[in-house]
Simulated assay, not measured.
Amino acid sequence: MSIGIIGAGALGSNVALLLAKNGISATIANSRGPESLAGLVEELGPSIKAGTVEAAASADIVVVALRWTDLEKALAGLPTWNGRIVIDGTNAVEFLDPDSPDAKDPNNPLAAYGIKAIDLGGKHSSEVFRKFVPGAHIVKAFNHLDVNVLGDPAASGAQRVLFYSGDDAGAKAEVRKLLEQTGYFPVDLGVLDVGGPLASLPFGALAAINFVRI
């Protein structure tokens, strides 16, 4: 299956690194165009190429690795998804300017981490995410670990755990296969309405916890 990555920031580039280390081909894209990614793809090697957002979005499996505040604009106007697999790697948080009043807000328990939670009106992030990719089979994954360790599934002689969840069994099977190919130990958290909130930052019970399989 072909793989596309939309977003080339910390998450997208580390997902691309993980794939490149395992010789898995992918197209990575950002809002600034393929030319802006020349240095990244040269560093990652021949299995990763830069493309347009439309090209990345046309893959069989598409990893959405965007900041929450960029989702609507970045995904608007893309071709219909028609049952293709979208891996939702997002979290409903806003990254704060360290010099802004929000970064010093004593009422924000996450200010010390440079983020604040985005109010989704009682919904979990994948529930809201659905509207940006109508017709896609969504699998939540790649969102609960520190992006700086994503490229290295081995830890202390053991295998890192990567959680995933989704509503379509076939889509989940394909994502599980991909996670296994990259060296992770995948753990299925069930349907999106259950697994999504459990593994989502900032308040998910399993978010940011680095489990390993010994």
Rank of each mutant, 00 (worst) to 15 (best):
A169R: 12
S126K: 11
S31R: 15
Q159L: 02
L178G: 07
N210K: 10
L206P: 06
L198H: 02
L78E: 02
Y113L: 15
T52E: 11
E54G: 10
A169V: 04
R32N: 14
Q181S: 14
Y113S: 15
R130T: 10
T52C: 04
A158M: 08
P34C: 07
V149Q: 00
G183I: 04
L145R: 00
A29G: 04
P79D: 02
A155E: 13
E35F: 05
N148F: 03
H137S: 11
A208S: 15
L206Y: 12
L75G: 08
D97V: 11
V53W: 09
L18I: 04
I85E: 02
K123D: 15
I61P: 07
S200Y: 08
F129K: 00
Q181M: 13
A154W: 08
R160W: 01
A208P: 05
L189T: 10
L37E: 05
G166N: 09
V15T: 14
V212K: 13
D152C: 08
I118C: 11
G151C: 08
I85R: 05
R67T: 13
A199F: 01
S2T: 15
D102R: 12
A207Q: 03
S165N: 06
S31M: 06
G7P: 04
A154Y: 10
L71Q: 08
V63M: 15
G122F: 14
F95W: 13
I24Q: 03
I24W: 04
G77R: 08
N82L: 06
L18V: 06
L162F: 11
G196F: 06
P197D: 10
A117E: 15
V128W: 02
E72Q: 15
G166Y: 03
K104A: 09
L96T: 09
E54L: 09
R84W: 03
V175Y: 00
R67S: 14
A10W: 07
N107M: 08
Q181H: 11
K123P: 03
P202L: 10
A173F: 00
L162C: 06
A8E: 11
L11Q: 08
A59Y: 07
S125I: 04
G51H: 08
G190Y: 02
V147N: 00
V128H: 03
P153E: 12
A136S: 09
Y164F: 13
N143V: 02
L120Y: 13
V41A: 01
V194S: 14
H137W: 06
L96W: 07
G77W: 03
A171W: 01
V133C: 01
W81K: 12
D188N: 13
I3P: 02
L11G: 01
L75E: 07
E94H: 14
